[in-house]
Write a protein that binds this DNA or RNA. Structure first.
Lengths: 114, 114
DNA sequence: TGCATTCGTTACGCCACCGTTCCATTTTCC
DNA sequence: GGAAAATGGAACGGTGGCGTAACGAATGCA
């Protein structure tokens, strides 16, 4: 079910959420990291480093480093694939789910303010 | 006129726009820079360094550096205030307007896909 | 069994952003 | 006039992401 937005509403929404995020969230995720995190949580698994790299059109080390950073933040977890030990499977965590839940609330709240 | 979104729609929207931005825009603005840029274009002028710093709850050099970077990208311009020469007034540019127009289109397009 | 391929990671040098602190200019107020 | 305040910016060391290029481990295939 599509949502029709005016140009002004679209930018206002983005503005409000960005502002809220800058003001209240000290975890300062890059746009890339944010895209990776959302991809992990919104697209059905399994997720591998290489898969994410090609899907986001980004080099592999970018994914590795993002997983390092977000792993330390508790937003994401890594597990070796048992069936092919070269692969690493990226797993979701409670912390990551909470983080995105809060982001979703921000988007919804700003949408209501339009 | 409020827009009511489900949690899934909100995150899906954010995901789609982030992904599109990562894939197609090499100008890699920080979340902070993005918030500053949107603030300049969506909130009525005048805008000063100090004003933006307090509004975004950020230190002054953050604003100065963001204006440096975005100035070189042609997204924003600086002009000395004639009436109080200590102040710097931040001005909009054609480049910045185009940039945000494209961003708005992305948001609207992703909204339509929900 | 060997050898090429695939996967994730690490190493390297580079560059941008960070907060703190200090500074030059301009204004205000006595 | 002169001191104090306010403004934007520069300097500093630190931190972290970047792309390129290598690497070790695991797999596939002849």
């Amino acid at each position: 079910m599509p949502i029709e937005l005016t140009a002004s509403q679209a930018l206002g929404l983005w503005h409000g959420v960005s502002l809220d995020q800058v003001r209240h969230d000290d975890r300062d995720l890059t746009l890339r990291q944010m895209a990776i995190l959302l991809h992990i949580y919104l697209v059905p698994p399994p997720h591998t480093v290489r898969g994410l790299a090609t899907e986001l059109d980004v080099t592999k080390p970018v994914i590795t480093r993002a997983l390092d950073t977000m792993g330390e933040m508790g937003l994401v977890d890594r597990v070796r694939d048992a069936s092919d030990r070269r692969n690493v499977l990226i797993k979701r965590t409670v912390g990551g789910a909470l983080y995105l839940e809060k982001l979703g609330d921000r988007v919804r709240e700003q949408g209501r303010k339009l």
